[in-house]
């Protein structure tokens, strides 16, 4: 029997749309994710990232477009699709009435998995999450980082092929973030497809093979972190401070240096392929910035360029 649905993508979204009344949360986005990829959704608050994640999990019904997860529509086949998904929601929703290890076992039972499988699996995951000695602890006795690791461990109880992570490290201290990144990297090496939303650019650069930048429900850019920086920013950025009162007026005197100039209230940014050379040009014009800094362009520059600097609520 020939299986015509043999998908080369584990997730396929085309023209995916979600409206809440008049408000358009997701406005016709399309993307495909091949197996084993770490795929990121970047965007400011309210860009539609979490809504997209919910539609992938089949817990939010789309208003329009097509979506298949491993060949099935999650709306029609929610339970079967979710059997292969692991979900780490934005806010931990651990079962506070159960002990740490029971959280894993009971969650596994929701998938209909047998205890003979779950017992050793729970121990394995506790070790993976560095919580082996906390198995009998109460959930509310755990620190924020531990709860997050337990949530991730829980999401792996069914050996998911796809792991959905909605802002996995928001609110964690640097140590906890690095431990989490390490764990996620191991999963990626094991062939798990990672779908990740974040607004930490360093996180996206660390973890994602490819990402889309989303704003107001639309895709603004798509590519690998390096390709996006190449395409939307320069190699280096020169940051100059002339003092708050002078930054704005000095802008005119900097015309023509670098590829692009951006004047902010506290500093002036010059996007250039060679930052040191740009700085020399500036001093040659007789300008004396209070401080100057040359750095590599980051995903953050791309992000701010694409989604703007004004606050979105």
């Amino acid at each position: 029997m020939h299986n015509s649905t043999a998908p080369e993508f584990v997730i396929s979204a085309s023209n995916l749309t979600k409206k809440y009344g008049d408000f358009v949360a997701v406005d016709g986005i399309s993307f495909d994710v091949p197996p084993g990829e770490a795929f990121g959704l970047l965007g400011p608050n309210g860009a539609g990232k979490s809504t997209t994640m919910k539609m992938i999990g089949g817990v939010s019904q789309r208003t329009g477009g097509d979506l298949t997860i491993m060949g099935l529509d999650p709306e029609q086949h929610g339970p079967e699709v979710r059997a292969h998904l692991g979900v780490v929601p934005q806010q931990d929703n651990l079962d506070e009435e159960l002990k740490v290890r029971d959280n894993l076992l009971v969650y596994g039972r929701y998938f209909g998995l047998p205890m003979s499988y779950l017992q050793p699996k729970a121990d394995e995951l506790l070790e993976f999450a560095q919580l082996s000695d906390k198995g009998k602890a109460r959930v509310d006795a755990l620190s924020g980082g531990m709860k997050r690791r337990l949530t991730i461990a829980r999401s792996l109880i069914n050996d998911p092929k796809i792991l959905l992570l909605d802002e996995p490290t928001t609110g964690l201290d640097p140590q906890a973030r690095h431990i989490l990144w390490d764990r996620l990297f191991r999963l990626k090496e094991a062939g798990v497809t990672l779908i990740l939303t974040t607004h930490y650019m360093d996180e996206a650069e660390q973890l994602c093979d490819r990402l889309i930048v989303v704003d107001k429900g639309r895709i603004m850019a798509e590519g690998s972190p390096a390709a996006l920086i190449r395409e939307h920013s320069t190699r280096e950025v020169l940051e100059l401070r002339f003092g708050s009162d002078r930054n704005a007026t000095v802008g005119a005197e900097l015309e023509g240096i670098g590829e692009r100039l951006e004047t902010l209230p506290d500093r002036v940014l010059i996007y250039a392929h060679d930052g040191e050379a740009a700085l020399e040009q500036i001093t040659a014009r007789g300008l004396r910035p209070i401080t100057s800094l040359v750095r590599r362009s980051s995903l953050e520059d791309v992000f701010l360029r694409l989604t703007g600097r004004s606050l979105v609520d």
Partner: peptide
């Protein structure tokens, strides 16, 4: 590859509402 990366749909009554668990 196909069997690894695609899922068999079930034909359960009330498909997306009920999993019999």
């Amino acid at each position: 590859l196909a069997s690894n990366m695609s899922i068999e749909p079930s034909r359960r009554f009330l498909g997306s509402l009920y999993s019999g668990n």
